[in-house]
Simulated assay, not measured.
Amino acid sequence: MADSDKQHVTLISSTIIYSVLILLVLFRSTPGYTQSSTTISGFIKNDILNEEERKWLNAHDGKIKLAPAPDWEPMEFFDENGEYQGMVADYIRLIEKKLKVKFKIVRIETWEKILVLAKTRKIDVLSAAQATAERKRFMNWSTPYLDLKTTIIVEKSQKKTFTLDQMKGMKIGVPAEYAVGKFIRDNYPELTLIDVLNGSEGMHKVSFGELDAMIMEVPNALHVIENEKITNLRLAGDTGFELNLGLGTRKDWPILAQIIEKSLASISKKEHKDIYAKWIRL
């Protein structure tokens, strides 16, 4: 090949390489392009997280401690094999799938102890709880993803419909440290509230006449009545208080709050409906 031809080929090759480099630079500077849309260096195609969030989450995969409420069927509970189950558990698994991460599920005996551990940052995530003023002091809170009405349960011989302002003088059970108890104490200080371990314990106490009424979430109440065959109780009124449940994350990890919020925003209406239909039968 003549020297002039070689020079011509070299010039063409250099021009092509230069053009490719220019295109790559332009592509990477295009608005909306992030490295998290690739599969390079641990990033995920079509990731809902940005690069900083993905790096943080990858570094904490399997280490983020989440403590479910231990006896809150059908919302969340541990079955006879110690497996985490329930409506909230299905949401947590869906969030894990969307984030491509695993939480470390920690089993704690009581809700009261869970809150103590969350305050001292020995627990990183609360899976489903009301963002009260007190809880906001030590945790960040997501947008609520579950809304639950609370109801008044009485023995069937009580025929009337109840509201909270009609219950003075009655012994009323509420699960210890639940948001509905704080609501009633703040707004109806004249009422006599008695803390119980959980809804099941409280409803059995009503059934045997140890309490006059129990206040709890509608799905939990229906589940206990059906599955524990408590045939002498009925739902007798609405408290007017609705639980708006979100995920709580430790205050010193604001990036985790951002990540959780993005995962919840990515849940479709169909996914919400499918989980609800699986666990709630009215």
Rank of each mutant, 00 (worst) to 15 (best):
A2C: 13
K6P: 05
Q7Y: 14
H8R: 15
T15C: 07
Y18P: 01
Y18E: 02
Y18L: 11
L24W: 14
S29N: 13
Y33I: 12
S41I: 05
I44R: 09
L49E: 03
W56E: 13
L57K: 09
K65L: 14
K65R: 15
F77E: 02
A89M: 12
A89G: 12
K98V: 12
I105D: 09
T110E: 10
E112M: 08
I114L: 05
A118W: 00
R121L: 02
T132Y: 05
R137F: 00
N140S: 00
S142F: 06
T143G: 01
P144A: 08
Y145P: 07
I153P: 13
V154G: 03
S157F: 12
K160L: 03
F162C: 00
Q166G: 02
G169D: 13
V174M: 01
G181N: 01
F183C: 03
N187F: 04
P189N: 03
E190R: 01
L191K: 02
M203Q: 15
M203V: 15
S207G: 06
M216T: 12
N220D: 04
N220I: 14
N232L: 12
L233Q: 11
A236G: 10
L243I: 08
L245C: 11
G246F: 07
T249N: 06
D252I: 10
H272A: 04
K278W: 05
K278M: 06
W279D: 02
